[in-house]
Amino acid sequence: MIAYIVRRVLYAFPLLLGINLITFVLFFVVNSPDDMAKNQLGQKHTTAQQIEDWKRERGYNLPLIYNEDASAGAKFTETIFYQKSIRLFVFDFGSSDSGRDISYDIANRMWPSLTIAVPHLIVGLLITITFALLIAFFRASYIDYWAVIICVALMSISTLFYIIGGQFIIGKLLKVVPISGYDTGLDALKFLILPVIIGIVGGIGSGTRWYRTIFLEEIGKDYVRTARSKGISEQLVLFRHVLRNALIPILTGVVVVLPLLFMGSLLTENFFGIPGLGSYTIDAINRQDFAIVRSMVYLGSVLYIIGLILTDISYTLVDPRIRLS
């Protein structure tokens, strides 16, 4: 087991290197630091000196890959590739283009993201699984037919409309909770309810439909027929046998997204003014702060790879038939 995990983690390194190369090429080769400086300082009335200053302040004034002026080992370390890209490997994000410490910001903004994402995931999962199980119980009837159509209709509504509509109806017309904002401690509750509810409602369509297919696949299997032929009631078959076995694909599907919960949701956080990592990313995109976007790309990739490794491990934990090799 441990040998397997070690091997999986080692596998991740070439991937991370590849991601690093892609971000490096995207951010420094396609557009040179000069372009970025010009973009940030404005097109007109920008002197070469200003550009040079801007680059020096942010450490972009080094050669890309190979520094001829430096001595020995510094030939490779005194470069943008080493300073900006290789250092991401040890999660040294450096400072943003506006001079703030990115690691500090990330550590701070992670928690608001989690307070939204975790209840959203758990409650949403419970609700969609319940719905899917109910539909599976009434399978091949009119209830099933119309439930699937409603699911498809719900899926066809853009997230933007769920958020705008929810804010308008619950926040503005009914005035139940504030439309947006954030607070610490228990006061945060009234700000969190709306985004969590809207997030859940927005995910019901696709979630229910997906879990329904998983349940239906499971219902067609031999052990279910055996259980029925033993005379077990349909409810018991569903809850005891089908649900338990269907949980394997459901849970392993959830494990992948677990690490990504830290990243938060871009849209929700932006609309509701929650100071999490999602709105951090959006703000960086709007301000064209490339240092932050680069860090978030890397962080997101690392979390995704961790999620993949966790998925493989969780398979073996919930399904003893699968053996690691």
């Binding site: 991937l15 590849g18 396609v30 557009n31 372009d35 973009n39 990313t281 995109i285 064209q288 990739s301």
Partner: peptide, 29 residues
């Protein structure tokens, strides 16, 4: 496999954001 696993690991929204940002810089320059 290596190529598509690498591309797949990068969160799509962020990859798109990064590419479009760079396009904007290129276009304004």
């Amino acid at each position: 496999q290596y190529i598509y696993t690498t591309l797949n690991s990068i969160p799509h929204v962020l990859l798109i954001a990064a590419s479009v940002l760079l396009l904007q810089v290129y276009m304004s320059n």
